[in-house]
């Protein structure tokens, strides 16, 4: 009887039967997860809830949305717009170039090691970030950078316009270093999942290459591409360490949070810092839920 109640209707019965000796005490089986769940609650969920408890606290300690509102207005709102702008830009660049690179890597057949090299390197570069990445681009595209000098040699003054490593264009360039390889890793399985038979079927039905991409290729890839875009957006939006080295000002949301946490603010103001963090968690949560849903959809074609 207990089995029937603890199993949701549907496939539950079949699973229970197939693994009968192991699942006869279902409710007790969940106890095995307790240490893991307790650890997560203590060191991840409690800090996250604490952020919200501070963010939703008014000037006199009462519950209220004043700080959340303040975190979304004035300079803070500017920071959100700036962060969202460059994160969306970085995600768009990473998505397009990453997909292109993955397509090239997937179509390479001749030097056989080349494809493996691209995937292996992507695995490394997608995890690159933090201080070393910022240092690398400072020495390439900083005011005294090697690349800046090289460009000067061919008559291009990188700093003639409003370029700066801490500005939108600069951050997009720097973040592309991990965004492009991350997109390669996300999209490559999907591109491999495009079956040659589909292309053949398309052409034997009278379609040409563009018909194939419009009607088959892109629709199949769409969930992966969109999912990748969201992942890259979230990745760029939450990055702290690299940005902290590229710019001193706190017009980027993560740096602004760090500034408020640094404690150089008056007593009532620290709640704004927590409210910024709370908004960031909300945005990240929405992004990750969308990514998760899209990934599920994309996996249908990857067998």
């Amino acid at each position: 009887m207990a089995l029937i109640f603890t199993n949701p209707p549907g496939e539950g019965g079949a699973v229970a039967r197939a693994t009968a000796p192991f699942t006869s005490q279902r409710s007790r089986s969940w106890l095995g997860l307790v240490p893991f769940l307790a650890f997560l609650v203590l060191f991840l969920i409690v800090p996250a809830i604490s952020v919200f408890s501070q963010a939703l606290r008014g000037a006199n300690g009462e519950f209220g949305f004043a700080s959340m509102g303040e975190a979304f207005s004035g300079q803070n709102l500017d920071a959100f717009w700036f962060s969202i702008t460059f994160s969306a830009g970085a995600a768009a660049v990473g998505t397009i170039l990453g997909t292109l690179l993955a397509y090239v890597a997937a179509s390479i057949t001749r030097p056989r090691w080349l494809r493996n090299a691209v995937t292996a390197f992507s695995g490394v570069a997608a995890n690159m970030g933090g201080l070393p990445l910022a240092f690398a681009f400072l020495s390439l595209l900083g005011r005294q950078g090697l690349g800046t000098k090289l460009l000067n040699g061919v008559g291009i003054d990188l700093y003639a316009g409003d370029f700066g490593l801490g500005e939108v264009t600069g951050l997009i360039t720097v973040y592309s270093y991990f965004n492009i390889p991350l997109m390669v890793l996300v999209i490559l399985p999907a591109i491999d999942g495009l079956k040659p038979a589909w292309r053949e079927a398309c052409s034997s039905l009278g379609g040409n290459s563009s018909t194939y991409w419009r009607r088959v290729g892109l629709p199949v890839l769409a969930p992966s591409i969109l999912g990748g875009f969201i992942l890259l957006f979230a990745n760029s939006f939450s990055a702290y360490a690299t940005a902290a080295q590229l710019t001193d000002n706190s017009k980027i949301v993560p740096l602004r949070i760090g500034f408020f946490l640094g404690g150089d603010v008056s007593v009532g103001e620290d709640a704004v810092g927590y409210a910024l963090a709370a908004w960031m968690i909300v945005i990240m949560a929405v992004a990750m839920i969308l990514y998760w849903a899209l990934r599920r959809r994309a996996e249908r074609w990857q067998s």
Binding site: L44, P47, A48, Q54, Y240, I257, Y274, A285
Partner: peptide, 29 residues
């Protein structure tokens, strides 16, 4: 608990939802 696998996997990506800067804000509280 083979059926709990995807739930546990989902929990392990929570650090993406609550990035380091969010986590450290909580630690400060």
């Amino acid at each position: 608990l083979p059926r709990a696998r995807s739930t546990v996997e989902f929990l392990t990506i929570l650090p993406y939802v609550i990035p380091a800067i969010g986590m450290v804000a909580g630690i400060m509280v």
